[in-house]
Design a protein around this nucleic acid. Structure first.
Lengths: 207, 207
DNA sequence: GTCTATAACTCGATAGAC
DNA sequence: GTCTATCGAGTTATAGAC
């Protein structure tokens, strides 16, 4: 294999460049990121960036692909499993919020970069085998038919759950400002959402 | 008054510049926006931009202030009114989604620019008299005490409602892709959310 | 592979004619 | 007020020594 998406050997120069680029691109986007800053953060100089990745655009693409190919199955694996619905929802919310807590800048990066270059993303960067939510949809319909949950449009249900998990991280600075929280209080507010969102969704699904 | 936030006379050069800048900044952000593109879109040349607004930063500030001072009361007026809670929720969702439908790029602009330059926003651009959600909080607590709704944390409730309204617009291209919708289908999906979100929230609040 | 030096380019800003 | 022409700072990219 001539060229991989993600560099392999840890602590190699290529890996250090990739990690630095990941950090900078994810926080500042394609336009806001500067090659100098990436070089500094990697502890090398600009010329080496071009030695490993021919251009800024190529480096950006490597990072964007890695981010998306890690994010996509995260949604898919949980939704496609054959657990009972309530358990699936519980685990999804718990796992999703935990994961985003560890990478709070990722969702906004994905969403705003997709908005700026939609064609680029859907043609070149997105993994081809994106998980489709068929299993989840059918499962919701069965539960409704069996009278175990309230009649609800499964697509809107899915969007609702994802929205409630992701949005608070995207809007972190606003929430912090609007509620007058300090850094620690914000953190526990976001942690609380695991139980709050779960309760909110399950309560809404009561028949 | 020497200088206003928004230019007054319609069809004036200043107004054309402001409108063009609004469009470009909102879609591409401070870093992604180019003065040349703004000039082209306004049908004038770069030099005139600097004649009316001394610098790119000043022009950006004018646009950002206008955007935020229109967005902030939109949340506040509805939440502070003294309507009964259920009616307030119904109207908020309806009105909020309608408004965002007309300006679908605004939420992502606000959120991603705040993330990139938080100090700048909170010190200079945000209107000083941001509406605080006290009325809403107390109202929810009263309804709970009276046993008319399920016990729920009012802050999380507010975040949930806003998340479900706003997020689908931020994630529009992803939703369209994931569900395989064309432009018209996406539009009606977003329109459907007015009733879907309202039902979802009110169902969750049942005692 | 890694560095220094510098070329080539983009873009915001200004000068000056009309 | 509006334009053309150009400058100069900041950035990406390359050349060439080690």
């Amino acid at each position: 294999m001539a060229k991989k998406d993600t560099p392999s050997t840890p602590d190699s120069t290529e890996q250090k460049i990739f990690d630095a680029a990941h950090e900078v691109f994810v926080q500042k986007g394609m336009d806001g990121a500067k090659m100098q800053e990436i070089a500094d953060k990697a502890g090398i100089n600009k010329a080496l960036l071009h030695y490993y990745y021919r251009s800024k655009e190529k480096l950006y693409e490597a990072v964007a692909k890695a981010v998306l190919s890690r994010a996509a199955p995260l949604v898919g694996n949980l939704i496609e499993s054959d657990r009972p619905l309530e358990e699936k929802i519980r685990h999804f919310i718990e796992f999703y919020i935990t994961t985003i807590s560890k990478n709070p800048f990722i969702p906004l990066f994905i969403l705003s970069e997709i908005n700026k270059h939609p064609d680029h993303f859907f043609e070149q960067i997105l993994p081809k085998d994106l998980p489709k939510p068929q299993v989840f949809i059918r499962q919701v319909e069965e539960e409704i038919a069996a009278g175990r949950i309230r009649a609800v449009n499964p697509y809107h249900l899915a969007v609702n759950v994802i929205a409630m998990c992701v949005f608070p991280f995207i809007a972190r600075p606003m929430i912090r400002f609007a509620m007058g929280l300090n850094s620690a209080e914000l953190k526990s507010f976001l942690e609380e959402r695991k139980t709050q969102v779960t309760e909110f969704v399950l309560a809404s699904l009561r028949p």
